[in-house]
């Protein structure tokens, strides 16, 4: 279980989050929506322990956590398959498994290519494959589908929805259609929190 309790974050004069609470149980899928800069990404970063809130508590009982950031964050010196394998055994034992994940995301022909040889959208799909591959208990996705055209996005959404199983999902999106396709409960920004 992920439990964010009365989280407050201020950047300079701007109060981004104000005593915002969010609880995520196993298998629960939640999407946060709201205008740019309202604090969606900040709350996701707090959930991932990448940002310390000014006040409030974070407790996370999930052991395997994965994330898809707004940027693909691939290691430039590893191939697409090696980037996915990085979160598996990181050895030859699971290379085929990594390739299979790339195959599911329509990147079968690109598994030996380096990030610099892939388009932005392809890199983002590698990062989605990397997040899904280890079978996370908690998956945090921050606008993961934005670099894809509509048809491709629908197919990637289906793969993601199938792969999630009983993982908890925290999705940040501007597109509520993506949230519903992944079976998320949608929380909208209001007065420093998501309700």
């Amino acid at each position: 279980m992920l439990n964010l309790k009365e989280i407050s974050v201020r950047f300079g004069e701007k109060q981004v989050l104000d005593k915002c609470s969010l609880r995520l149980e196993k298998g629960e899928r939640v999407a946060l929506t709201g205008p740019s800069g309202c604090g969606k990404t900040t709350l996701a970063r707090v959930a991932l322990s990448l940002h310390n809130p000014d006040s409030g508590t974070v407790s996370c009982g999930f052991a395997r956590i994965a994330a898809v950031f707004q940027e693909p964050r691939l290691l430039p010196w590893l191939t697409a398959a090696e980037n996915v394998n990085l979160v598996l055994s990181d050895s030859a034992r699971t290379v085929e498994e990594a390739r299979a994940w790339l195959e599911r995301l329509e990147l079968g022909d690109s598994s030996t290519l380096y990030p610099s040889e892939l388009s932005g959208g392809m890199q983002q799909r590698v990062s989605i494959a990397r997040a899904l591959a280890p079978g996370p208990e908690l998956l945090v996705m921050d606008e993961p589908f934005k670099a894809m055209d509509e048809a491709l996005r629908d197919r990637v959404l289906r793969v993601t929805a199938d792969a999630l199983g009983d993982a908890a999902l925290l999705l940040i999106t501007h597109n509520e259609r993506e949230a519903y396709a992944l079976g998320c409960r949608v929380l909208r920004y209001r007065d420093g929190c998501f309700v």
């Binding site: 990448l50 964050r73 990181d90 945090v140």
Partner: peptide
């Protein structure tokens, strides 16, 4: 990339090597 290593809980040695 260091944040990525933190989220995926890479051991120290793996973060160094990779």
């Amino acid at each position: 990339l260091l944040e990525l290593a933190s989220v995926y809980r890479f051991p120290r040695m793996k973060t160094f090597r990779r």
